[in-house]
Structures are given as structure tokens and as C-alpha cells.
């Protein structure tokens, strides 16, 4: 059986929850070669939630996000944004790529990167006015980077770069925020700044989804988890889905028992 056929058979029927969900992924299958990286995954993000996507390295976390956003072309599957196809809903989504995915030696300043978040507003040729600059500066202020507006981006530390990326996403003024490993390789102060901003977004009724690596902070930062290892393992509130059993299944026993014991598992 070909991969496509298998993927199509595996896809669940689109259910009613799709209509209200900020992001509903159905039957998503992605392959970079012969082996699927993401296989027939359904994911339903709950409005107003903060969801952590967790799983081991190479489990397809980032790929799932990219496929849902149309950055990577899936073999099969679709994603619906607030009940409609992605194409017409892009203005409702802000995406924060992995920090390491871009060249920070690119010749540009911090404020220019944040202004990229206003591209939908500015279009090809509209002039950047004072109010646009003001908006960009306000976003930098929210992530505690207002003193760095005129810095060249290569002069920033990893944590500062991550905050600039978050500021750019804030400038987009979206409803749904998708972040790919926002805490990877950042200092403690940045981690705190970022989680404060994300919790602020949640308080405003926005929805946040983040690929997350640090199992120790899942219960503290997030209210929902999506666990993946090529296939979906579990999805639900932290209280019901973030269990020892599901972690074992997700990481295939690669986590030492001691590691799991240290986690603050609500349901274990």
C-alpha cells in the first residue's frame, strides 16, 4: 500500500469541533523521503488555550506545524483555521519559526524585522508611517527589547533574537500564535519574558501553540498538550493527557524512570 493511500484511509472524518477550533488538522501526513515524518495526524487546538506540542527529536513536531501552515507540502491532510481553509485565514495566524532557521548575519536592524510583521498592512509599496514605527516599538516594549530597536540583528544574543521574533509575531496582531521551540537555547530572563507575553496573549483570549522541549515546565506553562511521535500519541488537557503512560509511549522508553519521576505530573 502506498503512503498516500494509507494516509487517506487513516484520516478521521471532519467533526463538528473543526468549526470553532482555531486550528484543526486532519489526516496530516508528511514525508521527506520514503519514511513518513508525520503520519495521519489529527490535531484540534482549543480556542483560548495554551498548547505544548511535545515529542522526542525527529518526532515531527516542527514538521506538523509547518505542514499545518502550508510551509511544507503534505502528502495528505488538511488544516482548517477557524473553520475555513488556511488560504483565506492567514491574517489570523502569527508564526514564530525556530531561531536557528534564519541567517542572523542578514543586514538589517531589529526594528526592520518587527516591521516585517506589518507586511499585510503595508503591502508592496505603502509607506511606513510614524504609526507603524510606533506599533513596532510597542511590540518591542512588550518583549523588553525597546532599547535595541536600532541594533543590527547579528549583535543580539540568542535570547534577544528570540524576543525579536516574538515581537514580530505580536506586530501581526493575530488570533492564533504558533511558535516553534521558542525556549530553545534562551537565557532564563528571556524564558520568563516570553512566557509572560504568551500568558498575556492567553489572557486576551488569543490561542497559543508552541513546540516545546523542556518536559519539566509543561505543567507550569501550558494548559494543554499534544504528544506526537510521527503518529499522534495523546491530546488533551495537561491534567488528563500528560501522564506517565503517555510519556512512555511518546518517548518509547527513552526517558529514564528517574527523569519522569522528577516531572510534576498531575495525573500520575
Amino acid at each position: 500500500m502506498t503512503l498516500e493511500l494509507a494516509a487517506n484511509q487513516g484520516s478521521a472524518p471532519v467533526t463538528d469541533t473543526v468549526d470553532q477550533s482555531p486550528l484543526a488538522v486532519r489526516g496530516m501526513t508528511v514525508s521527506y523521503g520514503q519514511k513518513p515524518v508525520v503520519f495521519s495526524v489529527d490535531m484540534t487546538i482549543v480556542q483560548g488555550s495554551m498548547t505544548a506540542i511535545i515529542g522526542p527529536n525527529g518526532a515531527g513536531k516542527s514538521t506538523l506545524l509547518k505542514a499545518a501552515l502550508g510551509i511544507v507540502k503534505p502528502l495528505a491532510g488538511q488544516s482548517m483555521v477557524y473553520g475555513a481553509p488556511l488560504r483565506g485565514q492567514r491574517q489570523k495566524i502569527a508564526y514564530v519559526p525556530q531561531r536557528a532557521s534564519v541567517d542572523w548575519d542578514f543586514p538589517t536592524r531589529v526594528i526592520d524585522v518587527v516591521l516585517m510583521g506589518l507586511y499585510r498592512e503595508l503591502g508592496l509599496l505603502r509607506r511606513i508611517k510614524a504609526r507603524h514605527i510606533e506599533k513596532a516599538r510597542a511590540c518591542l516594549e512588550r518583549v523588553g527589547m525597546s532599547d535595541f530597536a536600532d541594533r543590527q540583528i547579528g549583535q543580539l544574543s540568542g535570547g534577544q533574537q528570540q524576543r525579536v521574533f516574538l515581537a514580530r509575531a505580536l506586530a501581526q496582531g493575530a488570533e492564533l500564535y504558533l511558535l516553534d521551540e521558542p525556549f530553545a537555547g534562551v537565557d532564563a530572563a528571556t524564558e520568563k519574558a516570553i512566557i509572560d507575553v504568551l500568558k498575556g496573549l492567553k489572557a486576551e483570549g488569543k490561542t497559543v501553540v508552541a513546540v516545546h522541549h523542556d518536559l519539566a515546565t509543561v505543567t507550569e506553562y501550558f494548559d494543554r498538550v499534544f504528544m506526537i511521535n510521527t503518529r499522534k500519541i495523546a491530546e488533551g488537557s495537561v491534567a488528563e493527557a500528560y501522564t506517565r503512560e503517555n510519556l512512555d509511549m511518546t518517548y518509547g522508553g527513552r526517558l529514564a524512570t528517574g527523569q519522569i519521576d522528577q516531572l510534576d505530573l498531575i495525573a500520575s
Binding site: 509547518k66 510551509i71 508564526y95 519559526p97 516585517m116 507586511y119 499585510r120 508592496l124 509599496l125
Partner: peptide, 21 residues
Amino acid sequence: WLFWRPLKLSTFDEGFAQTLG
């Protein structure tokens, strides 16, 4: 001149540019 912003944006961060459509 016409495609200045898309050129700059997609050269810096192609993935992000794609999420803008």
C-alpha cells in the same frame, strides 16, 4: 523597487514569508 519588501522578507526568513501567503 516593486518587490523590495517580498524580496527582503523572503531572503531573510522564507518560512515566515510563506505564512504571510
